[in-house]
Design a protein around this nucleic acid. Sequence first.
RNA 1: CGGGGAGUGGCGCAGUCUGGUAGCGCACCCGGCUGGGGGCCGGGCGGUCGCAGGUUCAAAUCCUGUCUCCCCGACCA
Length: 560
Amino acid sequence: MTLLSTYFLPTEREPPADAEAISHKLMVRAGLVRQVGSGLWSWLPAGWRVHQRIVEIVREEMNAIGGQEMLMPVLHPAEPWRRSGRYSIEELFKLKDRRGADMVLAMTHEEIVTGHVATAIQSYRDLPLILYHFQVKERDEARPRAGVLRTREFVMKDSYSFDRDRAGLDASYERHRAAYDRMFDRCGLEWYRVEADVGMMGGVGAHEYMAPCAAGENDVVLAAGYAANIEVASADPQPVALPAGLPAPESVHTPGMRTVEAVTRELGVPAGALLKAFPIIVEGGEMKLVMVRGDHRVNEIKLGNALGEGFRAALPDDVAERLGPPGFIGPVGAQMPILLDQGVAPGAYITGANQSDSHLRGVEPGRDFEYEAVDVRSVLEGDTVAGATVRIEAAIEVGNIFKLGTRYSEALDASYLDESGVSHPIWMGSYGFGPARVAAAAVEQYADEKGISWPRTIAPFDVELVTLGKPGTEERALSDRLNEELQAAGLEMLYDERDIGPGEKFAEAELLGCPLRVTVGRRTLGAGEIEVQVRRGREGRSVPIDGASEAIAELWRGLP
RNA sequence: CGGGGAGUGGCGCAGUCUGGUAGCGCACCCGGCUGGGGGCCGGGCGGUCGCAGGUUCAAAUCCUGUCUCCCCGACCA
């Protein structure tokens, strides 16, 4: 039981001047977190209670799938990071110790855990294995933002699975998937599990857990039976009415019309009747021309995955020299490979002519230029997947599960001997969960004009008891007794027994957002009933004084 | 990394253009009233105006440098 009069809960009437995100404003106002520097936050007692309740849910679910909790350091020697090839990551904090040795601050723990497994595990008999810990992660983010949603230092639960083969990894991954589904359900979040990019580090499959909210930095593409990060999403475009074909491409004078918008306006055609050219330079230095429909956009992550190598956008000088005047480039006659997005239906299009102030109309892919079909465009709202219309929602990534494969085990020599004495690399998976983001996402998803409305399972306290009686009064005696009884009934109590006005108490209680607020005052005695407010929806209830604590506990158990 | 903005008491702000020795609301402390939605009255405490240098009789204000923070974008293994 916690007495509010002595609790360190510094609330504010006004949000920080520079805060934008709801969770940023409310978590600071409610006294849950305080900023130390850019992307660096302290968790104050009430905020840390939320964090710890989330951690405990995660711990229970990890243990339930056989995870073994451990702890690895944040400060590492640089050497394993050099071996894995991640030392060059810009976001990795690098420093030297007093002897001048290179050190890093861990952004995750693949290198270290794999190193332990490499030395400790020799036999197939020791597999499978799931190890995990809750530990601080350090990332030199280019731009921390939105309170605790994107920080440079944060606690993460990261787990690592070790299996003898692909099938074993699939099984460990599936266990995590089920555990993660339960974790987010238990935390009371709205969430999606979406297909995700495996990133530059390879890997053989990944999903992200996304909590939809306004402050989300990611876009997720959703349709019946389909959910993917927009970085990898694939869908069928809405059809576009194309003009009739021509026997051959025909030049059109288009003075100064360097943009799709200018061409569509001047020629009176829909943007989808154009093909837009996106020239790139791949790692070997070769220029390639990526073409998408005029109303579509190239998705650089999908393009990178399709290419299987790095690339950069071609500079205007490159384009002018090797193709044509920027703003008027097109595929016809281009002396370079052409990648045509698969969203381009057969038909006649308008493209740049590779000459100043002119376009071509009646250009037909295949007839007028050779191409390789690729899927590189960003999905748009209204596209369809298997006939179902997609919508796009902003969301915050709260967890991810990732099939690493053997990338780290090979780099760090983590192998085992099978039954016939043959050595194989261990198949690994890694699985992240961010409690701070879960807390912030819950704030984002359920806040109203009065403040936070926590899901029951992760609230800092189960019940905030507001007494309006001064010490020595009958109503105060009643509230003191009720507080004891509710505590005894198993509820975590925050007892507001401060000598301040009722309005302030109610306002602060709703700001902090415990699922139930119980009020005891003079009126309570007269009515013979105790007033209970359900924070979600701010709905008022009342329960008889007799048996009140059990009735309130029962009410609490039925909350979301 | 590119663009934009901001540093004045615990919080939110005014004052800066046009230089003259710092102010408002809230919070806090004391006293009183009030007591079911951030209540009222009276009296107080608290700030080397981010930092450093310069100009000037005089700098929160002008100049130079520097640090920090926020927002948009890029990036995000």
